[in-house]
C-alpha cells in the first residue's frame, strides 16, 4: 500500500496527490512515469511524475478527473492509500546541453512539463515557459512555473486570462522575435504536440514531445503502447515516453488512443482507457 500524504485541488477537474513511495522518489528523473492500480479490481494506469521529494520519500502526480480511474482517484484524501504504485518507468527526458529552452505545457500536460522546466533551470539553461488553457478557471501551476523560468507566458483560448490564443501562436512569435531556442519541449494533448512540432519544423529546432499511449505493464511487455517514430515501431513505455516530435506519427497515436471509446460509452461513461497522463 502506498499512502497519500498530501492532496490538493488545482482546478475543478485537476488535483495533485503526493504519495509515499521512497524507492521511486529516490530514482525518478524528469520525464519518467509511474503505473498505479487503485484497488484489487482496478486497471493499471500510467501517470507522469510531476515532482519528487527524495528526502521525504514522496512522489507527486497530477491527475485530471476524466475517466473511471481518475475520477475514483479524485475521491482520495491525505491518509488514504493506493494499492499499487510502480516506477520510475520510461527514459528520463534528455535535457543535457540545452542552453535556451522553451517548455510548453497544454492543460494538465503542464504537470509533466514542470519537472523538465525545473531540471533545465537547475542545469543553468535559459528557460521560457508557455502554458495554454481553454479558459481562466483551468489555469494551474502558475506560481510553480514562475519559480523555474525566466519568462512565463500564459495563454487562454478565450482570452479570459493571459494572452488570447494558442501556445503555437506565442511560440511562433517568440521564435520570430529571435528567441533562438536550441530545445523545445511540448507536453499536452496530442493535437497540441503535433502543431508545436509543425511550428518548429521550418526552423529546425529540436522538439521533444511526451507521448501518452495506452499502457498496461509499462515494462515493454505488452506492446500496447507502440508508436511509429521515423517509420519504426517503438514502445513508448521503455524507449519513451519522449520522442523527436518531428518524427512521430501523431495521427496514428490519436487513432490508437481511441480504441476503447465504444466500451467507454457502453459502460455509461465509465472511462476505462487509462488515459490519465
Amino acid at each position: 500500500m502506498f499512502k497519500i500524504v498530501n492532496q490538493r485541488q488545482l482546478n475543478d477537474a485537476v488535483f495533485l496527490l503526493e504519495v509515499e513511495a521512497p524507492f521511486v522518489a529516490k530514482k525518478a528523473k524528469a520525464g519518467q512515469f509511474v503505473i498505479l492500480r487503485m484497488d484489487e479490481k482496478g486497471e493499471r494506469v500510467p501517470f507522469t511524475i510531476a515532482d519528487t521529494d527524495p528526502e521525504k520519500g514522496t512522489v507527486t502526480i497530477i491527475i485530471q478527473a476524466v475517466g473511471y480511474t481518475t475520477k475514483m482517484l479524485s475521491t482520495l484524501r491525505a491518509g488514504d492509500s493506493i494499492l499499487d504504485f510502480a516506477g520510475p518507468l520510461g527514459m528520463p527526458t534528455e535535457l543535457e546541453g540545452a542552453k535556451r529552452a522553451c517548455v510548453i505545457g497544454g492543460g494538465v500536460g503542464c504537470a509533466i512539463a514542470y519537472p523538465s522546466a525545473k531540471a533545465l533551470k537547475a542545469n543553468g539553461a535559459h528557460v521560457d515557459v508557455i502554458t495554454g488553457f481553454r479558459t481562466k478557471d483551468l489555469v494551474i501551476l502558475e506560481k510553480e512555473f514562475q519559480a523555474v523560468s525566466d519568462n512565463l507566458y500564459v495563454t487562454t483560448d478565450d482570452g479570459s486570462y493571459g494572452e488570447k490564443g494558442f501556445v503555437t501562436n506565442k511560440l511562433k512569435a517568440l521564435i520570430e522575435d529571435g528567441a533562438n531556442y536550441d530545445l523545445v519541449i511540448a507536453i499536452g494533448p496530442v493535437p497540441m504536440m503535433k502543431f508545436v512540432a509543425e511550428t518548429t519544423r521550418p526552423y529546425g529546432i529540436k522538439t521533444l514531445v511526451s507521448l501518452n499511449p495506452i499502457m498496461i505493464d509499462g515494462t515493454g511487455m505488452c506492446g500496447c503502447c507502440r508508436v511509429t517514430v521515423d517509420g519504426k515501431t517503438r514502445f513508448a513505455c521503455v524507449e519513451g515516453p519522449d520522442f523527436d516530435g518531428h518524427k512521430v506519427d501523431f495521427d496514428e497515436l490519436m487513432n490508437r488512443n481511441s480504441v476503447y471509446k465504444e466500451e467507454e460509452r457502453e459502460a455509461d461513461h465509465k472511462c476505462k482507457i487509462g488515459w490519465g497522463r
Binding site: I216, D217, C222, C224, T233, R256, V259
Partner: peptide
C-alpha cells in the same frame, strides 16, 4: 496495418 486499432500482441491480449 499492425498499428491499426484491433491488433494485439498475444501478451497484451492475454495480460488483459
Amino acid at each position: 496495418g499492425e498499428a491499426l486499432v484491433g491488433v494485439y500482441s498475444a501478451n497484451e491480449y492475454l495480460t488483459r
